[in-house]
Design a protein around this nucleic acid. Structure first.
Length: 803
RNA sequence: GCCGCGAUGGCGGAAUUGGUAGACGCGCUGGACUUAAAAUCCAGUUCUAGCGAUAGAGUGAGGGUUCGAUUCCCUCUCGCGGCACCA
């Protein structure tokens, strides 16, 4: 047993005093930038799940430091946003005050775990010196035409009293509070992220070190689909009904056309629609539905036929019926589809219900029975000049036909929607725009940045949908920077994602007041070599950050097109009862208590040992005691003037290599296991280790258990920190095995094993095997058909099977 | 429904160009030490049969490829994550 409290406190203080973690700018050294997703400092503090990723990056950082790299491993706080604002309202505090208290608590909790952060580089997104550059980037986007105002209906959370982006919804409910959301028209600032859709998709291929699952999620999020826009004529009207389809090849099977109820064509066709009252009623009913109801797949498809209107198929001049139905979304494609019930399941279901005819135009290429609704590619059937073509070439030729006849064109669509970038809330970066009656939306001049958040009496949402900022007359009323006339400030603030979209750049150059980041420094430190965080950010933060970075690249602020070279997702730690850690279940484990009772080194080691890094797994205090026992065993190893056994020497050098390799691979659980095996071997030789090898043991342990390793390092008279020593290099000769276990199997089944010198030949092994009693009895009276020999591994004797 | 990932002892998990399944840890059993307990140390621990040597079975289920499959292929079941009427 050792006094972890005393040791850990002592070294944390010494490291601070000696500025062990100060990050230098010596650009002649190779750099390594390791980044954690920075935390949101909530009022409840950290539970043991939060630091898991930080422990892993800290181990990697310490290894890299010992390997001679200039390591940047910073930490900061993503502090703007709703939770703090709501927390402040509830506790009758100012959001700024609540943030300061929460950050101080988080820092304290991080400090006791012994991380290598250089707090000189700390970032807070709420610091005006930081958000000056968030605002600056926004204005650059405004200048570049990427930002626009939109009056589209937005998702409105009646409980949070704020607008939400689609990204902030879960199952049509508010991600934060779980309330059902409503549709409410609201003036919003929107960023044209869709302009970058193609690059965000294509450049995923430049990220081989990202986990495929996260790349797949981003791909699905962008949702690219290639197809065609086709103009259907409207009978007895000049209007064109433009539809989008990925399956032009099925168009000869089109028996009706469907418009989204909100499609503006509906209003334009009003004069021809003979059942308008019925149509209007349907449109009104759809409007009242929440998105949740509308997108519920289990519900029946509904729609109304537009009596008096017909659409003309440009390929064959056929007139087909026109419907409105809420299964067609106005926000995707053209808000209109051509329906081919024979080859699309939704259309099939709808046609069945409304008695619309079903016409086959594709037959399966293989000789199989065609189902009523066949959705795969095949051969074209009854399709005029295109009959007999396969689907793929038909699509190419039919699009060419459309373009030649001016009836449509090739078109790529994305599910990705533009980024609603404003919130009607107080605790966010003010959007630096001034509204002038004469000049329109005018940017706040760059030299006036940062545009700071004013103090306000009440942080409660106004309830009208406007930000509390709107109530501060002397802040709102200003003069137009362009014409000098009276004007009003924008009162919306930015979403929480804004500050986190580029923070990794600021760590490189945190105090620069002339630029977002110095370009030479950025060239040296970027990109982030290793980024670690929760997979839940795959389609939000990670997507926005990639977009923001590409924009900064385009305007020449950064040198590289992608911000994060390697990405690893951290698995959750759930409660001992198998449920997510939450106050509600009373299963939260507080790291403060674990550190007090077992020490930070034990916590670090345990979280790395408990499961593969990216897997989620349940906390188990018994397992924690197991790694604490391991540390106690390390302490009890004594140094000796006697040489070590061959087994220990061999194992030590193998372990040096394995631990370093495993850290770089984020396979911490097997690294810890390898160290345990080594220590067990040392105990088998009496718990003594030679003076020459003892320091090596401490060095491989140091990244995992820094306090203890540092203490033991000092105990053997080392004057400087163990983290200023060089990570040991394994001796390849000492790692070599002189003996191997040769497996002898008969028909693939292990029957015996032989301890033999390495490099032994097949004939020698065979001779020994045939003599072996355990092998002999299986071979008696049997004919040997063949032998398979894997050098230094096994020999398999194959005999003829005679029942 | 679609996309991705996964399923191994009582538990967490280990094992990759296909070659000893169950490393390491927890738990459990026994022993040493102790007046006793805790701690520590040592030994054992997949299941079945056997005192034992040993034999048989065994990596979610079924099939296949192979001298040999936890690993590769096909079908299915269950679980996790993401997306979801995207035309």
């Amino acid at each position: 047993m050792y006094d972890h409290l005393q040791i850990e406190k002592k070294w944390q203080q010494k490291w601070r005093e000696s500025q062990l973690y100060r990050v230098g700018e010596d650009q002649t050294k190779p750099k390594y930038y390791i980044l954690d997703m920075f935390p949101y400092p909530s009022g409840v503090g950290l539970h043991v799940g939060h630091p898991k990723g930080y422990i892993a990056t800290d181990i990697l950082a310490r290894l890299k430091i010992m390997q001679g790299f200039n390591v940047l491993h910073p930490m900061g706080f993503d502090a703007f946003g709703l939770p703090t604002e709501n927390y402040a309202i509830k506790n009758k505090m100012q959001p700024q005050g609540a943030t300061d208290i929460n950050i101080a608590n988080y820092k304290r909790q991080l400090e006791i775990l012994g991380f290598t952060y250089d707090w000189e580089r700390e970032i807070k997104t709420t610091d005006p010196r930081y958000y000056k550059w968030t605002q600056w980037a926004f204005l650059k986007m405004f200048e570049a035409g990427l930002v626009f105002e939109s009056y589209e209906p937005i998702n409105w959370c009646p409980s949070c009293k704020t607008g939400l982006a689609n990204e902030d919804l879960e199952d049509g409910k508010c991600e934060r509070c779980g309330s059902e959301i409503e549709q409410k028209p609201m003036r919003q600032w929107v960023i044209r992220i869709t302009d970058y859709a193609e690059r965000l998709l294509a450049d995923l291929d430049k990220l081989p070190e990202w986990e495929t699952s996260i790349k797949e999620m981003q791909k699905n999020w962008i949702g690219k689909s290639e197809g065609a826009e086709i103009n259907f004529g409207a009978a007895s009207s000049e209007l064109k009904i433009k539809v989008f389809t990925t399956r032009v090849d099925t168009i000869f099977g089109c028996t009706y056309v469907v418009l989204a109820p909100e499609n503006e064509l509906v209003e334009k066709l009003k004069s021809q629609i003979t059942n308008w009252s019925q149509v209007a009623e349907y449109i009104a009913a759809v409007k009242n539905k929440t998105n949740l109801e509308r997108t519920d797949l289990n519900k029946d498809k509904t729609g109304v036929k537009l009596e008096g209107v017909q659409a003309i198929n440009p390929f064959n001049g056929e007139k087909v019926a026109v419907f409105i139905a809420d299964y067609v979304l106005n926000s995707y494609g053209t808000g209109a589809v051509m329906a081919v019930p024979a080859h699309d399941e939704r259309d099939y279901e709808f046609a069945q219900k409304y008695g619309i005819s079903i016409k086959k135009s594709i037959s399966p290429a293989a000789a199989i029975e065609a189902p009523d609704c066949y959705t795969d590619d095949g051969l074209l059937l009854a399709s005029g000049e295109f009959t007999g073509l396969n689907s793929a070439s038909a699509r190419t030729q039919m699009i060419a036909w459309l373009e030649k006849n001016n009836q449509g064109n090739k078109k790529v669509n994305y599910k990705l929607q533009d980024w609603v970038f404003s919130r009607q809330r107080y605790w966010g970066e003010p959007i630096p725009i001034i509204h002038c009656a004469k000049c329109g939306a005018v940017p706040v001049p760059y030299e006036q940045l940062p545009l700071t958040l004013p103090n306000v009496k009440s942080y409660e949402p106004s309830g009208t949908g406007e930000s509390p900022l709107a109530t501060i007359a002397d802040w709102v009323n200003t003069t137009c920077p362009k014409c000098g006339g009276p004007a009003q400030r924008e009162t919306n603030t930015m979403p929480q994602w804004a500050g986190s979209s580029w923070y990794y750049l600021r760590y490189i150059d945190p105090h620069n007041d002339k630029a977002l980041v110095d370009k030479a420094r950025e060239k040296y430190w970027s990109p982030v070599d290793f980024y670690v965080g929760g997979a839940e950010h795959a389609t939000r933060h990670l997507f926005y950050a990639r977009f923001w970075h590409k924009f900064l690249f385009d305007i020449g602020v950064v040198n590289y097109e992608e911000p994060f070279k390697k990405l690893k997702a951290v698995g959750l730690i759930i409660g001992e009862d198998g449920r997510k850690m939450s106050k509600r279940w009373g299963n939260v484990i507080n790291p403060d208590e674990v550190v007090a009772q077992y020490g930070a080194d034990s916590l670090r080691l345990y979280e790395m040992f408990m499961s593969p890094f990216s897997d989620s797994s349940a906390w188990n205090t018994k397992g924690l005691i197991g790694v604490r026992k391991f540390l106690d065993r390390v302490i009890n190893i004594t140094t000796s003037t006697e040489p070590d056994s061959a087994v220990v020497i061999n194992l030590l050098h193998k372990t040096i290599k394995k631990v370093a390799d495993d850290i770089l691979d984020f396979k911490f659980n097997t690294a810890v296991s390898a160290m345990m095996i080594l220590v067990n071997a040392i105990y088998n030789q009496g718990g003594k280790l030679s003076q020459a090898n003892y320091p090596l043991l401490l060095q491989i342990l140091a990244p995992f258990a820094p306090h203890l390793a540092e203490e033991l390092w000092a105990n053997i008279g080392q004057p400087d920190s163990i983290f200023r020593s060089s990570y040991p290099t394994p001796d390849v000769n000492l790692m070599k095995d002189s003996q191997i276990t040769m497996v002898v199997s008969v028909n693939g089944k292990m029957r015996a094993s032989l301890e033999l010198p390495t490099g032994i030949s097949e004939s020698e092994v065979l001779a020994l095997a045939l003599e072996h009693e355990l092998v002999k009895k299986w071979l008696e009276g049997k004919e040997i058909v063949k032998k398979i020999f894997v050098p230094d591994k096994l020999i398999n004797i194959v005999i003829k099977y005679t029942p």
